[in-house]
Amino acid sequence: MSVEQTVKMPAAPRFARLRTFLDGDLVYGFLRTPSAVISAIVLLVIALTAIAAPLLSPQDPYDLTQLYLDKAELPPIWTAEGQAPYLLGTDVQGRDIFSAILYGSRISLMIGFASVIVSVMIGIVVGLTSGYVGGRIDNLLMRIGDLVLSIPTLLVAILVSAIFRELLPVSMRDAFTPVILTTSIAITSWVQYARIVRASTMVEARKEYVLAARILRLPPLRIMLTHILPNVMTAVLVTATLNLGLAILAEATLSFLGVGMPVTQPSLGTLIRIGNQYFFSGSWWVVLFPALQLSLIILAVNLLGDWLRDALNPKLR
Protein backbone atom coordinates (compact mmCIF):
# COMPACT_ATOMS: atom_id res chain seq x y z
CA MET A 1 0.00 0.00 0.00
CA SER A 2 1.35 3.36 -0.83
CA VAL A 3 1.78 6.41 1.33
CA GLU A 4 -0.75 8.65 -0.35
CA GLN A 5 -3.61 6.34 0.47
CA THR A 6 -2.99 6.26 4.21
CA VAL A 7 -3.21 10.04 4.59
CA LYS A 8 -6.93 10.87 4.54
CA MET A 9 -7.82 14.19 3.02
CA PRO A 10 -10.49 16.18 4.90
CA ALA A 11 -13.86 15.56 3.30
CA ALA A 12 -14.14 18.21 0.62
CA PRO A 13 -17.48 19.60 -0.49
CA ARG A 14 -18.71 18.35 -3.82
CA PHE A 15 -17.34 20.13 -6.90
CA ALA A 16 -14.72 21.82 -4.71
CA ARG A 17 -12.04 21.30 -7.30
CA LEU A 18 -14.25 22.72 -10.03
CA ARG A 19 -14.95 25.72 -7.77
CA THR A 20 -11.23 26.44 -7.21
CA PHE A 21 -10.60 26.03 -10.92
CA LEU A 22 -13.38 28.48 -11.84
CA ASP A 23 -12.15 31.03 -9.29
CA GLY A 24 -8.54 30.64 -10.42
CA ASP A 25 -6.31 32.94 -12.46
CA LEU A 26 -6.69 30.90 -15.63
CA VAL A 27 -10.44 31.38 -15.94
CA TYR A 28 -10.19 35.01 -14.81
CA GLY A 29 -7.58 35.77 -17.45
CA PHE A 30 -9.51 33.83 -20.07
CA LEU A 31 -12.70 35.82 -19.58
CA ARG A 32 -10.73 39.04 -19.96
CA THR A 33 -9.06 38.05 -23.26
CA PRO A 34 -11.63 38.72 -25.99
CA SER A 35 -9.67 36.88 -28.69
CA ALA A 36 -9.51 33.72 -26.55
CA VAL A 37 -13.22 33.82 -25.67
CA ILE A 38 -14.27 34.40 -29.29
CA SER A 39 -11.98 31.63 -30.52
CA ALA A 40 -13.35 29.25 -27.92
CA ILE A 41 -16.91 30.05 -28.91
CA VAL A 42 -16.14 29.68 -32.64
CA LEU A 43 -14.42 26.36 -32.03
CA LEU A 44 -17.23 25.13 -29.83
CA VAL A 45 -19.83 26.00 -32.48
CA ILE A 46 -17.77 24.36 -35.23
CA ALA A 47 -17.17 21.25 -33.14
CA LEU A 48 -20.83 20.93 -32.11
CA THR A 49 -22.13 21.43 -35.66
CA ALA A 50 -19.54 18.93 -36.88
CA ILE A 51 -20.63 16.34 -34.31
CA ALA A 52 -24.30 16.97 -35.05
CA ALA A 53 -23.67 16.94 -38.83
CA PRO A 54 -26.14 14.09 -39.57
CA LEU A 55 -28.92 16.05 -37.81
CA LEU A 56 -28.16 19.46 -39.29
CA SER A 57 -27.24 18.78 -42.89
CA PRO A 58 -29.96 18.48 -45.55
CA GLN A 59 -28.01 15.77 -47.40
CA ASP A 60 -25.68 12.89 -46.56
CA PRO A 61 -22.66 13.67 -48.76
CA TYR A 62 -21.38 10.07 -48.44
CA ASP A 63 -24.60 8.62 -49.83
CA LEU A 64 -24.28 8.69 -53.61
CA THR A 65 -28.01 8.06 -54.08
CA GLN A 66 -28.73 11.47 -52.58
CA LEU A 67 -26.65 13.34 -55.15
CA TYR A 68 -28.62 14.66 -58.14
CA LEU A 69 -26.74 15.71 -61.24
CA ASP A 70 -29.48 18.12 -62.26
CA LYS A 71 -28.79 19.98 -59.03
CA ALA A 72 -25.07 20.24 -59.85
CA GLU A 73 -23.11 23.49 -59.64
CA LEU A 74 -25.90 25.51 -58.06
CA PRO A 75 -24.66 28.81 -56.61
CA PRO A 76 -25.36 29.79 -52.97
CA ILE A 77 -28.95 30.41 -51.94
CA TRP A 78 -28.71 34.23 -51.80
CA THR A 79 -27.81 34.51 -55.49
CA ALA A 80 -30.41 34.51 -58.29
CA GLU A 81 -30.02 30.83 -59.28
CA GLY A 82 -29.72 29.51 -55.73
CA GLN A 83 -32.12 26.73 -54.70
CA ALA A 84 -33.81 26.07 -51.41
CA PRO A 85 -32.12 23.29 -49.42
CA TYR A 86 -28.65 24.07 -50.80
CA LEU A 87 -27.54 26.90 -48.51
CA LEU A 88 -24.02 27.32 -49.89
CA GLY A 89 -24.62 25.83 -53.35
CA THR A 90 -23.54 22.47 -54.78
CA ASP A 91 -20.48 21.09 -56.58
CA VAL A 92 -20.28 19.40 -59.99
CA GLN A 93 -21.66 16.14 -58.62
CA GLY A 94 -24.60 17.82 -56.93
CA ARG A 95 -23.05 17.54 -53.48
CA ASP A 96 -24.44 20.13 -51.04
CA ILE A 97 -21.51 22.30 -49.96
CA PHE A 98 -22.99 23.09 -46.55
CA SER A 99 -23.44 19.41 -45.66
CA ALA A 100 -20.04 18.55 -47.11
CA ILE A 101 -18.42 21.24 -44.93
CA LEU A 102 -20.09 19.91 -41.76
CA TYR A 103 -19.02 16.33 -42.52
CA GLY A 104 -15.62 17.51 -43.73
CA SER A 105 -14.94 19.49 -40.55
CA ARG A 106 -15.78 16.36 -38.64
CA ILE A 107 -13.05 14.40 -40.41
CA SER A 108 -10.54 17.26 -40.27
CA LEU A 109 -11.06 17.81 -36.53
CA MET A 110 -11.04 14.09 -35.80
CA ILE A 111 -7.77 13.43 -37.63
CA GLY A 112 -6.25 16.59 -36.14
CA PHE A 113 -7.11 15.57 -32.57
CA ALA A 114 -6.20 11.93 -33.09
CA SER A 115 -2.78 12.71 -34.53
CA VAL A 116 -2.01 15.14 -31.71
CA ILE A 117 -3.05 12.53 -29.12
CA VAL A 118 -0.97 9.82 -30.78
CA SER A 119 2.10 12.04 -31.12
CA VAL A 120 1.74 13.23 -27.50
CA MET A 121 1.60 9.62 -26.34
CA ILE A 122 4.66 8.63 -28.39
CA GLY A 123 6.42 11.77 -27.15
CA ILE A 124 5.62 11.03 -23.51
CA VAL A 125 6.79 7.43 -23.70
CA VAL A 126 10.00 8.34 -25.53
CA GLY A 127 10.66 11.47 -23.44
CA LEU A 128 10.10 9.78 -20.07
CA THR A 129 12.23 6.79 -21.00
CA SER A 130 14.94 8.99 -22.43
CA GLY A 131 15.00 11.41 -19.51
CA TYR A 132 14.63 8.91 -16.68
CA VAL A 133 16.69 6.00 -17.96
CA GLY A 134 19.31 8.08 -19.78
CA GLY A 135 22.52 6.60 -21.13
CA ARG A 136 22.56 4.69 -24.39
CA ILE A 137 18.80 4.40 -24.73
CA ASP A 138 18.53 8.17 -24.38
CA ASN A 139 21.18 8.66 -27.01
CA LEU A 140 19.54 6.27 -29.45
CA LEU A 141 16.05 7.74 -29.03
CA MET A 142 17.24 11.30 -29.43
CA ARG A 143 19.24 10.41 -32.55
CA ILE A 144 16.08 8.94 -34.07
CA GLY A 145 14.36 12.20 -33.21
CA ASP A 146 17.12 14.21 -34.87
CA LEU A 147 16.76 12.07 -37.95
CA VAL A 148 13.02 12.72 -38.18
CA LEU A 149 13.65 16.45 -37.89
CA SER A 150 16.37 16.41 -40.52
CA ILE A 151 13.89 15.64 -43.30
CA PRO A 152 11.14 18.18 -44.03
CA THR A 153 8.00 17.04 -42.17
CA LEU A 154 5.65 17.60 -45.08
CA LEU A 155 7.78 15.36 -47.25
CA VAL A 156 7.82 12.57 -44.66
CA ALA A 157 4.06 12.80 -44.21
CA ILE A 158 3.44 12.63 -47.97
CA LEU A 159 5.76 9.66 -48.43
CA VAL A 160 4.44 7.72 -45.42
CA SER A 161 0.88 8.33 -46.45
CA ALA A 162 1.50 7.40 -50.11
CA ILE A 163 3.47 4.27 -49.24
CA PHE A 164 0.97 2.94 -46.68
CA ARG A 165 -1.83 3.49 -49.15
CA GLU A 166 0.09 1.60 -51.80
CA LEU A 167 0.79 -1.31 -49.48
CA LEU A 168 -2.87 -1.79 -48.56
CA PRO A 169 -5.18 -3.76 -50.84
CA VAL A 170 -7.46 -1.46 -52.84
CA SER A 171 -10.63 -2.56 -51.05
CA MET A 172 -9.27 -1.46 -47.66
CA ARG A 173 -7.68 1.83 -48.71
CA ASP A 174 -10.57 4.21 -48.22
CA ALA A 175 -11.57 2.78 -44.86
CA PHE A 176 -8.05 3.01 -43.49
CA THR A 177 -7.15 6.43 -44.86
CA PRO A 178 -7.96 8.29 -41.60
CA VAL A 179 -5.68 5.88 -39.71
CA ILE A 180 -2.91 6.29 -42.29
CA LEU A 181 -3.19 10.07 -42.17
CA THR A 182 -3.15 10.12 -38.37
CA THR A 183 -0.08 7.91 -38.35
CA SER A 184 1.82 9.87 -40.94
CA ILE A 185 1.18 13.17 -39.14
CA ALA A 186 2.04 11.67 -35.75
CA ILE A 187 5.29 10.16 -37.05
CA THR A 188 6.50 13.62 -38.01
CA SER A 189 5.45 15.52 -34.88
CA TRP A 190 6.25 13.42 -31.79
CA VAL A 191 9.85 14.64 -31.53
CA GLN A 192 8.93 18.03 -30.12
CA TYR A 193 6.97 16.45 -27.24
CA ALA A 194 9.70 13.92 -26.60
CA ARG A 195 12.26 16.72 -26.26
CA ILE A 196 10.07 18.73 -23.90
CA VAL A 197 9.22 15.73 -21.72
CA ARG A 198 12.84 14.57 -21.69
CA ALA A 199 14.16 17.97 -20.62
CA SER A 200 11.62 18.38 -17.80
CA THR A 201 12.01 14.75 -16.73
CA MET A 202 15.74 15.23 -16.30
CA VAL A 203 15.06 18.25 -14.07
CA GLU A 204 12.29 16.55 -12.08
CA ALA A 205 14.21 13.30 -11.64
CA ARG A 206 16.77 15.08 -9.46
CA LYS A 207 14.20 16.57 -7.10
CA GLU A 208 13.56 15.31 -3.56
CA TYR A 209 10.10 13.87 -4.14
CA VAL A 210 11.41 11.57 -6.85
CA LEU A 211 14.31 10.60 -4.60
CA ALA A 212 11.82 9.86 -1.82
CA ALA A 213 9.77 7.70 -4.16
CA ARG A 214 12.88 5.82 -5.18
CA ILE A 215 13.86 5.26 -1.54
CA LEU A 216 10.40 3.77 -1.04
CA ARG A 217 11.39 1.34 -3.79
CA LEU A 218 8.48 2.21 -6.01
CA PRO A 219 8.91 0.64 -9.44
CA PRO A 220 10.43 3.02 -12.04
CA LEU A 221 7.36 2.81 -14.24
CA ARG A 222 5.19 4.04 -11.40
CA ILE A 223 7.58 6.88 -10.55
CA MET A 224 7.59 7.96 -14.15
CA LEU A 225 3.86 7.83 -14.66
CA THR A 226 2.40 8.98 -11.33
CA HIS A 227 5.14 11.21 -9.96
CA ILE A 228 7.04 12.82 -12.81
CA LEU A 229 4.46 12.88 -15.58
CA PRO A 230 1.91 15.16 -13.85
CA ASN A 231 4.65 17.73 -13.34
CA VAL A 232 5.67 17.85 -16.98
CA MET A 233 2.16 17.82 -18.46
CA THR A 234 1.60 21.61 -18.50
CA ALA A 235 4.31 22.25 -21.07
CA VAL A 236 3.07 19.28 -23.11
CA LEU A 237 -0.51 20.53 -23.13
CA VAL A 238 0.49 24.02 -24.27
CA THR A 239 2.57 22.61 -27.10
CA ALA A 240 -0.22 20.21 -28.01
CA THR A 241 -2.70 23.08 -28.34
CA LEU A 242 -0.26 25.04 -30.48
CA ASN A 243 0.36 21.95 -32.63
CA LEU A 244 -3.30 21.07 -33.08
CA GLY A 245 -3.53 23.87 -35.64
CA LEU A 246 -0.50 22.47 -37.45
CA ALA A 247 -1.94 18.95 -37.41
CA ILE A 248 -5.24 20.09 -38.93
CA LEU A 249 -3.24 22.06 -41.49
CA ALA A 250 -1.11 19.01 -42.28
CA GLU A 251 -4.16 16.83 -42.91
CA ALA A 252 -5.70 19.51 -45.13
CA THR A 253 -2.45 19.87 -47.08
CA LEU A 254 -2.14 16.12 -47.64
CA SER A 255 -5.76 15.88 -48.73
CA PHE A 256 -5.34 18.90 -50.97
CA LEU A 257 -2.33 17.30 -52.65
CA GLY A 258 -4.33 14.13 -53.25
CA VAL A 259 -2.62 11.77 -50.81
CA GLY A 260 -5.23 12.28 -48.07
CA MET A 261 -8.94 11.66 -47.71
CA PRO A 262 -10.61 10.29 -50.86
CA VAL A 263 -13.33 12.12 -52.78
CA THR A 264 -15.96 9.71 -51.49
CA GLN A 265 -15.23 10.79 -47.90
CA PRO A 266 -14.05 14.36 -48.28
CA SER A 267 -12.32 16.30 -45.52
CA LEU A 268 -12.02 20.08 -45.81
CA GLY A 269 -8.73 19.68 -47.70
CA THR A 270 -10.32 17.29 -50.19
CA LEU A 271 -13.22 19.72 -50.71
CA ILE A 272 -10.74 22.49 -51.50
CA ARG A 273 -8.98 20.14 -53.91
CA ILE A 274 -12.28 19.37 -55.66
CA GLY A 275 -13.19 23.06 -55.77
CA ASN A 276 -9.76 24.00 -57.07
CA GLN A 277 -10.43 21.99 -60.24
CA TYR A 278 -13.62 23.85 -61.05
CA PHE A 279 -13.37 27.46 -60.01
CA PHE A 280 -12.05 28.61 -63.37
CA SER A 281 -15.50 27.81 -64.74
CA GLY A 282 -16.93 30.35 -62.29
CA SER A 283 -18.15 28.17 -59.38
CA TRP A 284 -16.11 29.95 -56.71
CA TRP A 285 -18.37 28.79 -53.86
CA VAL A 286 -17.20 25.18 -54.14
CA VAL A 287 -13.68 26.15 -53.09
CA LEU A 288 -14.24 29.32 -51.05
CA PHE A 289 -16.52 28.10 -48.25
CA PRO A 290 -14.50 25.01 -47.25
CA ALA A 291 -11.35 27.19 -47.40
CA LEU A 292 -13.00 29.73 -45.13
CA GLN A 293 -14.08 27.08 -42.62
CA LEU A 294 -10.60 25.50 -42.59
CA SER A 295 -8.90 28.88 -42.06
CA LEU A 296 -11.36 29.75 -39.31
CA ILE A 297 -10.68 26.49 -37.45
CA ILE A 298 -6.90 26.87 -37.62
CA LEU A 299 -7.02 30.56 -36.68
CA ALA A 300 -9.23 29.87 -33.66
CA VAL A 301 -7.01 27.00 -32.48
CA ASN A 302 -3.88 29.14 -32.89
CA LEU A 303 -5.37 32.08 -31.00
CA LEU A 304 -6.41 29.77 -28.15
CA GLY A 305 -2.98 28.16 -28.12
CA ASP A 306 -1.25 31.54 -28.04
CA TRP A 307 -3.38 32.67 -25.15
CA LEU A 308 -2.80 29.43 -23.23
CA ARG A 309 0.96 29.68 -23.72
CA ASP A 310 1.03 33.25 -22.42
CA ALA A 311 -1.34 32.46 -19.54
CA LEU A 312 0.75 29.53 -18.32
CA ASN A 313 4.11 31.21 -18.88
CA PRO A 314 5.42 32.19 -15.43
CA LYS A 315 7.82 34.71 -17.03
CA LEU A 316 4.97 36.93 -18.15
CA ARG A 317 3.04 36.94 -14.87
Partner: peptide, 22 residues
Protein backbone atom coordinates in the same frame (compact mmCIF):
# COMPACT_ATOMS: atom_id res chain seq x y z
CA UNK B 1 0.58 37.96 -38.95
CA UNK B 2 -1.70 35.73 -36.84
CA UNK B 3 -3.92 35.24 -39.87
CA UNK B 4 -0.79 34.70 -41.97
CA UNK B 5 0.39 31.74 -39.89
CA UNK B 6 -3.12 30.27 -39.72
CA UNK B 7 -4.46 30.41 -43.26
CA UNK B 8 -3.00 27.53 -45.30
CA UNK B 9 -0.71 28.57 -48.17
CA UNK B 10 -2.87 26.80 -50.74
CA UNK B 11 -5.94 28.70 -49.55
CA UNK B 12 -4.07 31.98 -49.96
CA UNK B 13 -2.95 30.88 -53.40
CA UNK B 14 -6.50 30.01 -54.44
CA UNK B 15 -7.89 33.29 -53.12
CA UNK B 16 -5.15 35.22 -54.97
CA UNK B 17 -6.03 33.40 -58.20
CA UNK B 18 -9.75 34.06 -57.66
CA UNK B 19 -9.16 37.78 -57.17
CA UNK B 20 -6.27 38.66 -59.48
CA UNK B 21 -6.74 36.15 -62.29
CA UNK B 22 -10.41 35.20 -62.43
Amino acid sequence: SMVGVSVPAFVIGIVLILVFSV
